[in-house]
Design a protein around this nucleic acid. Structure first.
Lengths: 235, 235
DNA sequence: TAATTTAACATGTATATACATATAGACATA
DNA sequence: TATGTCTATATGTATATACATGTTAAATTA
């Protein structure tokens, strides 16, 4: 009975015990957990306390509870929540992501300043990259990021995930994104770098990415015959 | 005291009363709600019952609770998480959503059976609707839904939100969606119903919507010059 | 006056108990 | 065999009570 005293609430400790149990005993999704009353006996707790633990585990998606039947290990969501980065998406398809920097310049924010919540005259980096999957050009992506946030990014390796560079070099972890999708026709310039050989409909993705404040704005054009963007969302 | 009897749980009714109160009294974000013990007295309920109501409201993001201080009206998130339904998106832009049913048929699931996790020979409804915003055609949408899940949907009003019909008529609340985006060129058929007058790039949205299991599959084509689809995502 | 203590009040944690309701299986009946 | 009923067991709802702990402001003290 590990619940005699201590500063950590009993229901909280019970939660961790249940999580550990599921892992340790190698329980599978759908397996039934002990009943509420069984937990009461085993740990000398009241039913309300046990219920608080189970209720929170249910909210966290770790278990599911069915009235009259019992509590069961939840089926973990098969796919990742939210939008994946380009690197993640390509790897998920079993392909190798490649990136080529097409353009890199430092210039005043101009109209992007509004999105990034900085002055129009403050400097930003504008980085345009061609992204490929196992050699096939998939998208052209332009990123606008305030220069103050990423000093010395010139020296960083931008042939991989910008996400990773921000996190490892600057401790910036994107937590929230506002992304909009539309369809446009390719311009001659895009056709050239994407090797399209003609006019094609392209998927345009505009995305403002936040940490505690806006970090960078991104505009990408995907040749969506080759590559669909998928998002998984819970409500 | 509206809590003497009835099939609807007291905590649930209290939740609705509190929500109504917030609206009716025009309370602003940050305003303090009555204390737990005040609710107990006012409605003759035990504190645990009141707490269950408040806890759920907190989970739903309607109130925030601070230990030692009280409960307060939450600051509503500026933008809704996830993808909004067509109806929600149009209203958010201050336009009036309209829907016209173009086609309605019952037929075997065929290849859609795989997505919907039913047999190929089981019956589904295939519903095609034209969706407009303040009179302007915006999208053509086709929904595939197992007939067993929505018996008698022929009689329902499909000129509004399918989301609402599922919830109110069948108790089905979509909890998770897997959505993919791509760009395509319009077909003559689409050009006709969307009144495009020529070939245009369209935003194609395919979406599988889940409750506890897959509920319906949806394919929409948006004229994205008029209408961008935006998603807000936390990681 | 300024700092500290105290008291009132808020939510958080926990127990004990009772009855309601949903589920599944055992059992009896037609 | 098929159907319906009973029963054990599960979670859901609800009450009453007690003490812990964080917050705030008034009262007290130096």
């Amino acid at each position: 009975m590990p619940f005699k005293k201590g500063p950590i609430p009993a229901y909280f400790r019970l939660k961790q015990i249940i999580i550990d149990d599921i892992k340790k005993k190698g329980m599978n999704p759908g397996d039934m957990l002990p009943s509420e009353r069984e937990y009461c006996e085993r740990f000398g707790l009241s039913r309300m306390t046990v219920r608080q633990a189970l209720k929170e585990l249910e909210h966290e998606g770790i278990i599911v509870r069915e009235r009259g039947r019992g509590s069961f290990v939840a089926i973990p969501p098969i796919e990742q929540e939210g939008i994946m980065s380009f690197t993640e998406m390509v790897r998920a398809k079993g392909l190798e992501p490649e990136t080529e920097v097409l353009e890199f310049q430092k210039r005043p924010a101009g109209p992007w300043g509004e999105f990034l919540e900085i002055g129009e005259k403050e400097e930003i980096y504008e980085i345009t990259r061609l992204r490929k999957a196992s050699g096939v050009p998939i998208a052209v992506e332009t990123v606008f990021i305030p220069a103050l946030l990423v000093p010395g990014i010139e020296a960083a390796d931008l042939s991989g995930s910008l996400f990773t560079v921000l996190q490892e070099r600057y401790g910036i972890e994107i937590k929230r994104s506002k992304t909009s999708f539309s369809a446009v026709l390719s311009t001659p310039e895009m056709e050239k770098v994407l090797m399209l050989g003609g006019t094609w409909p392209l998927l345009r993705v505009e995305s403002l990415n936040f940490y505690t404040k806006p970090i960078y704005y991104e505009i990408s054009h995907y040749r969506s015959d080759q590559f669909k963007i998928t998002v998984n969302i819970s409500r």
